[in-house]
Write a protein that binds this DNA or RNA. Structure first.
Length: 507
RNA sequence: GCCGUGUUCGUCUAGUCGGCCUAGGACGUAAGGUUUUCAUCCUUAAAAUCGGGGGUUCGAAUCCCCCACACGGUACCA
């Protein structure tokens, strides 16, 4: 049995789309499950679309996600180089090979001439296609004499190499997800394999590299399915054994239909990219999962389940579990809409499961970001107190700021609802009771306060929330006496005085 | 237009060879409980006549045909 070798082959034209991440993930899972290799190849045959920083971004994104390549641009390997621009000299001979055995031909038609043809056809509600029916009337090595062709090439006239589809042939593509896909060659046009700038197109480079790198399975997005017949024919033309194909369903936008795009993320408020990206030209910033406070493990888990599931009811799975459970057969055929709410749920789950060590790393960073320095023991204690309420890392601060910084403002809604007449008198008295507990104990303080509330026939919800409001600034947070214990009796007294002064008596 | 691929609760999906599906789970939603607050958590509920229409069959979400719709492709882009 052939060794499993798969590749993820992005173009460095911008940040890595989350759909691309899923494609890479499925490749990874499949490779690892079969003890195979996972390769990163950069497909930069279109020099006009190159975006500086994109390649580095891609590498960093996978590092963050914890998806490790066995070979690739950044780590090398036996089958390098792993960047197509660096493989440029290799491709010409393969184009030549195809010409020599009649599977391809030179074409000299200018882009302008072809455009005109297309427009002309369009006017008649037809589509112009460079194919078996039209190539006889165009400017190429099939219609020109050998001398004319040589003359053109020797004079430096630009040319491309096109694939020569056989006429009226049924082409079969076997797809691991979709089964047999058939198409008649008459419907296909003679794709350019080799461009006039001396670079191969995706199609040629892809097949040559996959063959040379001994790729066993091509797992890629569904947008490639229409060109799969060409790829199958190319393998045939070269006399090479074709890899297995699996075309993944697309990731759709959450509302409406269509591919998930960068704009959808901005519009709906969720990241479409693993890492934040700043466009080097426009300076525009697109948000990333990392910066938005997602844990990489959660992103992986969420992505894995978008279009695949193990067939059981298990939903929480780490990378290793995914590796053992994954199967291409269980990938669904239809596109999946991205669901922000479910992503949020996954992240919450992973935050709860994270080790203290990992979580504290994030937590202390958040504190630092807000200019807070705290003793580790204290910070750790606070983290435990509030972690179950955070869904995303940045929420740590929203949930815990009052443990480090006294509130200066009080949620007006809560004040209106809870701060009754007389509150400004009761709170200091309750505070005195708490101060009288020596040494402080949550339970004893709690009991004394309860006694006071009951004997004065106070509205429990109102008075206790006013107390909370004074300490927190809002009607939220963990157990009140837990908070008092954490910030200390002295600080509590200070906050009560301040709240009473600020809010004062009310009707 | 042409070609290709798809179509089960709002969303992600289970549903291998037709019967155990009066279609299951999860997210979300609603109600209730816990919490004196918020969040969490727990319980319960509503939610898909399986895109539509024809067949085949004792029996179809599952097989066949037609239609509709959506998406993808249709570049010297990947």
């Amino acid at each position: 049995m052939k060794r499993v070798r798969v590749r993820f082959a992005p173009s460095p034209t911008g940040p890595l789309h989350i759909g691309g991440v899923r494609t890479a993930l499925y490749n990874y899972l499949f490779a690892k499950q079969n003890g195979g290799d996972f390769i990163l190849r950069i497909e930069d045959t279109d020099q006009t679309r190159f975006v500086p920083g994109a390649e580095e971004y891609i590498i960093e994104a996978f590092q963050w996600l914890g998806l490790q390549f066995d070979e690739g641009v950044h780590i090398g390997g036996k089958y390098g180089p792993y960047k197509q621009s660096e493989r440029k000299p290799m491709y010409k001979q393969y184009a030549q090979q195809l010409i020599d055995n009649g599977w391809a031909y030179y074409a000299f038609d200018t882009p302008e001439a072809l455009d005109a043809k297309r427009k002309e056809a369009e006017a008649q509600k037809k589509t112009f296609q460079y194919d078996a029916h039209t190539r006889g009337g165009l400017c190429n090595s099939l219609t020109l004499s050998k001398e004319e062709v040589d003359a053109k090439i020797n004079s430096g006239e630009p040319y491309v190499v096109r694939f020569k589809y056989p006429a009226d042939t049924e082409i079969h593509v076997h797809d691991l997800i979709r089964g047999e896909v058939k198409i008649n060659s008459n419907l296909l046009d003679d794709k350019v394999l080799y461009k006039s700038d001396g670079m191969p197109t995706y199609h040629l480079a892809n097949i040559v590299d996959d063959h040379l790198m001994e790729i066993s399975h091509v797992i890629r997005g569904e947008e490639w399915l229409p060109s799969a017949p060409l790829h199958v024919m190319l393998y045939k033309a070269f006399g090479w054994e074709a890899p297995e194909f699996a075309h993944l369903p697309l990731l759709l936008k959450p509302d409406g239909n269509g591919k998930l795009s960068k704009r959808d993320g901005d519009r709906l408020g969720f990241p479409v990219f693993p890492l934040q990206w700043k466009d080097p030209k426009s300076g525009e910033i697109s948000s990333g999962y990392r910066e938005s406070g997602y844990l990489p493990e959660a992103v992986i888990n969420m992505l894995a389940l978008l279009g695949w599931n193990p067939g059981t009811e298990q939903e929480i799975m780490d990378l290793n579990t995914l590796v053992s459970l994954f199967s291409i057969e269980k990938i669904s055929k239809s596109g999946a809409k991205f669901d922000l709410e479910k992503a949020k749920w996954f992240n919450h789950q992973y935050i709860q499961m994270a080790s203290d060590e990992v979580l504290f790393g994030f937590f202390s960073q958040e504190l630092e970001k807000h200019g807070v320095t705290a003793e580790k023991d204290y910070a750790l204690r606070i983290m435990h107190l509030i972690k179950e309420r955070v869904h995303f890392i940045p929420e740590f601060w929203d949930q815990c700021s009052y443990f480090f910084v006294a509130p200066t403002e009080y949620d007006p809604q809560a004040v209106k609802k809870r701060w009754k007449a007389g509150t400004e008198l009761h709170l200091p008295k309750m505070m005195e009771l708490i101060e009288s507990v020596q040494p402080f104990s949550k339970q004893a303080a709690h009991d004394k306060v309860m006694d006071y509330v009951q004997s004065n026939e106070l509205n429990m919800g109102a008075i206790m929330n006013s107390f909370r409001l004074s300490l927190v600034g809002a009607a939220k947070g963990p157990d009140l006496f837990e908070i008092i214990d954490a910030i200390g009796v002295e600080e509590t007294a200070k906050r009560i005085r301040r709240a009473v002064e600020t809010i004062g008596p009310r009707e």
